[in-house]
């Protein structure tokens, strides 16, 4: 291929390059905006204490599942304390259930097992269950959850 040395060739190349890049830039920006249109932005989160009822609602050794405006949690009462966990399995997001006999949280999707402190002890889950703070005011239980 012959290399063009004259100014005309260079000028044509430059103008085409500028137009080409401009077009690419414009199309790229448009595509990016379209993608942003499709990907919803996460909503801001804040913590709030939600009343879940009196202590008697959760018998010792039992775990009560609750749905607090979309947040699926489970409140477990052991002999010593009351704990609140997210039911979302840390593996791939299925919901764990409390097994009273085994005293463990089980995830039916991929056989993940968590002990009563929420620690992942068997199966694929990479980390313990998310835990929420439980506050007792008198007889009433409150859970500090992230709400959107």
């Amino acid at each position: 291929m012959a290399i063009i040395h004259d100014d005309l060739g260079r000028r044509r190349f430059l103008s085409q390059a500028v137009m080409g890049f401009g077009l690419l830039f414009g199309m790229g920006t448009l595509a990016l905006r379209f993608l942003q249109f499709l990907v919803p932005s996460p909503k801001p989160k804040r913590y709030e204490a939600v009343l879940i009822g009196s202590l008697s609602r959760v018998p010792v050794g039992e775990a009560v599942p609750m749905d607090l405006s979309g947040q699926k949690i489970v409140v477990l009462r052991t002999n010593e304390e009351v704990l609140a966990f997210s039911r979302r399995c840390t593996d791939l997001g299925c919901l764990v259930s409390w097994s009273k006999e085994r005293e463990q949280f089980l995830c039916p999707c991929h056989q993940g097992v968590f002990d009563k402190t929420g620690k992942n002890i068997a199966g694929p889950p990479p980390r313990p269950l998310d835990r929420f703070e439980v506050v007792t005011r008198g007889d009433q239980l409150y859970v500090n959850i992230q709400s959107s």
């Binding site: 999707c109 991929h110 694929p124 889950p125 990479p126």
Partner: peptide, 11 residues
């Protein structure tokens, strides 16, 4: 694939 992700740890 389902059994594979059940048997092996997540990552």
């Amino acid at each position: 694939a389902y059994m594979w992700i059940t048997l092996l740890p997540g990552p």
